[in-house]
Design a protein around this nucleic acid. Sequence first.
DNA 1: ACCCTGTTTCGAAGACTGTCAAGATAGGCG
DNA 2: CGCCTATCTTGACAGTCTTCGAAACAGGGT
Lengths: 111, 111
Amino acid sequence: MADQQALACCSPLAARPLDADQAAVVAPMFKALGDPVRLRLLSMIASVPEICVCDLTPAFDLSGPTISHHLKVLREAGLVDSERRGTWVWYQVRPEAIRQLGVLLDLPAVG
Amino acid sequence: MADQQALACCSPLAARPLDADQAAVVAPMFKALGDPVRLRLLSMIASVPEICVCDLTPAFDLSGPTISHHLKVLREAGLVDSERRGTWVWYQVRPEAIRQLGVLLDLPAVG
DNA sequence: ACCCTGTTTCGAAGACTGTCAAGATAGGCG
DNA sequence: CGCCTATCTTGACAGTCTTCGAAACAGGGT
């Protein structure tokens, strides 16, 4: 959440080099996307308004705890939010966070 | 390089969930960006037409071999190209690769 | 031919990651 | 209250990653 603000200052990679502090804020977000399971989880979450863990878990040949761990990584990276409603926990993306990463990769017409 | 083609088929994360094969192709590219040193290296490379390793190394408190290792990761992820010209090796970004990652993160006006 | 500088490869140490089983926690229902 | 299901946390293990120093390789200059 503090990360969100820090990110707001970042312009595309090609504009000027990131300093060490900026890189330290952004890299963990990319790192969270750097696992195929998490990338699929995020894309499943992003493709609907919200989704229950109980709908995510069966899509993988992985244990519940493992899925839970990956969701925690996405949560701590600030890429998704979760909310418990009764028995189930619902996840949704944080569009600003993802959009900010997108902006960073938005190269002008170089090359 | 095969990765480049495979990527070309990917629409934004929110459009529909990635399948396991697509995720396996894209995740390593995000993973390469998931280290602060590599993110800074890439941003330094992206901010100029091309740049020599000899200009990259002194920007970090890391040994030459370590920088070389990170550059190799970026190269193998398809994010940069390198070319030896005489004594020095020059790096430049592969704009298509980076743009494709950007497209993936390009959320429509959700949320 | 020799040496010198720039870059990569190799091999090893320590930290980190993905995964699971087992146990803990949260909430609904009888 | 006690039980059941859904989810998360803990602890452990194997595999991977970051980093370094030492050694190899590439080119240019003397």
